[in-house]
Nucleic acid binder design. Structure first.
Length: 507
RNA sequence: UCCUGAGUAGCUCAAUGGCAGAGCAUUCGGCUGUUAACCGAAGGGUUGUAGGUUCGAGUCCUACCUCAGGAGCCA
């Protein structure tokens, strides 16, 4: 059923993409893509083409093209693949500003009438779209999301690559299921042993950090928890930096600088995609806008971020990457200094301050359930906290009891852990979780025992504190939640080409 | 795991316990500026599965299956 592709009538027309078509105004060009939509008005056809970089409408007056071209296009089925030659013309009626006066087409493959492309232009249900995810990703909105995802991934890696980090890859198959509380995917490992898909490379990345200094990993992560929400996937991608001689405050500066860079890059190159997706771009501009401490917040905002004059040389805002200081140069070894935070663009709240904010919100009837001091924040709590700010908010120093065993206690209050959660604006929840790690052998050993974890499995991890231990910190960012936030999506399933969820592993 | 909701044409959805319907898609016809184009016509159904109540069930009852989103947990 395929038609051999024949050379277009004007082979001299250079091949270009729809994204770059504006550079060819008045010229003849060749596009290689698919028929996205077709409207007709008697002897005038309006085919819309797509090529993966965007869409453009073509114009085909019957009198202006050979009979063969008009008749072929008139009955062509949607999503058939083809090569088009035509002349680029600026037109104020076109959404993108340009239209294509079609000269010739060459069909690569025509979809038969009996088996039309399943995804229609009109709305469809989630179940149907997910069942056809392999085709759904061709539609303009999904393609735009995947393009933004690619840029977010590139910007994230680029940030670390250009700031002295070495990319390092932790194992995906791990030998024990006891790193934390998450449920893991289990598999047979040559009969005698069980293996598990990694839930985080962090412990291994700590080891490579002690080998290389500043490292990051970027790979898939697996959680077998039976979560069914718009924020959860069973397989997702995480980028995790780990830095020696970095304390919690330095880590927060790193996270801020990192996120600022990502948002800046997306705004540089994806304004059209964000508009297509429906994201309010001003919300992203607010994230990277240089701010005084007075303007980035709502009245409820606490005074936490106005503490501490030191670290004023760190001003990670919308500055280009090249001028963004490497955060590790500004934080000193082992000097976690309690509540003193450098001034920054992203608000920083201690757990206690966030708790007070929630108590106040409950008293005023803004949230349903009262937060219990000492408990971790629930999803509605995080949504409320983040809704009070225009920028990602960093909540730090949670009660150690609700956090992981490897987190360093706050020397000013050992019941607190030197950790930070970064909550994305607009209720997108936690996108980054990180901490300063326990660097003392005896303390870490007792923590492992307190958590009833098998010492033997962690001996290698304890070795890191036995042989040249240093203060170090790191965080992990889930790519999908970051994409969902930046694109303004209802559900993380749209942020990855083939989402894996509790009830779906097809296609 | 718990709570809630939904399964009817290829898709999105209607239908007081009383003849199974519309829009889109498909096919045929019309239209020289359409923007999910529009106008006319045609074809298209084992109402998720299995029982039950009833003169009569898409509709009521029971069980099961599938999916969705919320809680918990997390990124």
């Amino acid at each position: 059923m395929s038609t051999p592709a024949t050379p277009p009538a004007t082979p001299a027309a250079p091949v270009t993409t729809i994204a770059e078509i504006g550079q060819h105004e008045g010229q003849s060009i060749t596009l290689r893509g698919w028929l996205y939509n077709l409207r007709s008005s008697g002897k005038l056809l309006f085919p819309t083409f797509r090529d993966g970089t965007g869409t453009i409408q073509g114009i085909v007056p019957k009198a202006a093209v050979p009979e063969r071209v008009f008749e072929t296009l008139k009955t062509l089925t949607l999503e058939s693949s083809l090569v088009v030659t035509g002349r680029v013309r600026a037109d104020s009626r076109a959404p993108s500003g340009f239209e294509l006066d079609v000269d010739d087409i060459s069909i690569t493959q025509r979809i038969p009438d009996e088996t039309p492309f399943p995804i229609q232009l009109k709305e469809a249900g989630v179940d149907f779209l997910m069942e056809h995810r392999h085709l759904w990703i061709r539609t303009p909105r999904q393609s735009a999301i995947l393009r933004v995802r690619a840029t977010i991934q590139r910007a994230a890696a680029e940030y670390f690559d250009t700031n002295g980090f070495f990319r390092t890859d932790p194992p995906i198959l791990t030998p024990n299921a006891c790193e934390g509380t998450s449920e893991l995917f289990e598999m047979d490992y040559f009969g005698d042993d069980k293996a598990y898909l990694t839930q985080s490379g962090q412990l291994y990345i700590e080891a490579t950090a002690l080998a290389l200094g500043k490292v990051y990993s970027f790979g898939p992560t697996f959680r077998a928890e039976k979560s069914k929400t718009r924020r959860h996937l069973t397989e997702f991608w995480m980028i995790e930096p780990e830095v020696t001689y970095l304390d919690l405050d330095g880590l927060m500066s790193l996270a801020e600088s990192f996120l600022t860079h990502i948002v800046s890059r997306v705004l540089e190159t994806h304004r059209a995609d964000l508009k297509l997706i429906g994201k309010d771009i001003t919300k992203l501009e607010a994230v990277i806008a240089p701010t005084s401490t007075a303007e980035a917040c709502h009245p409820e905002r606490s005074a936490a971020e106005s503490k501490g004059p030191e670290g004023a040389d760190i001003t990670p805002t919308a500055a280009p990457l090249s001028t963004t200081p490497a955060p590790t140069t500004t934080s000193s070894a082992g000097h976690a200094e309690g509540g003193k935070s450098p001034r920054s663009g992203f608000p920083r709240l201690t757990y206690d301050e966030a708790h007070a904010m929630l108590v106040d919100a409950h008293a005023r009837g803004l949230i349903e359930t009262a937060h219990t001091y000492g408990d971790d924040f629930g999803s509605p709590d995080e949504t409320y906290i983040s809704s009070q700010f225009d920028k990602p908010v960093m909540v730090h120093r949670y009660p150690a009891a609700v956090k992981a065993f490897y987190m360093q206690p706050d020397p000013l209050d050992p019941t607190k852990a030197l950790c930070v959660d970064v909550l994305a604006p607009e209720g997108y929840g936690e996108i980054i979780g990180g901490s300063q790690r326990v660097d003392d052998y005896d303390l870490l050993k007792s923590r492992i025992e307190q958590h009833n974890l098998p010492l033997a499995a962690f001996q290698w991890y304890l070795d890191l504190r036995k042989y040249g231990s240093v203060p170090h910190s790191g965080f992990g960012m889930g790519i999908e939640r970051c994409v969902a936030w930046i694109c303004g999506l209802e559900h993380v399933r749209e942020t990855i080409p083939f989402p894996r969820t509790l009830n779906r592993i097809y296609p």
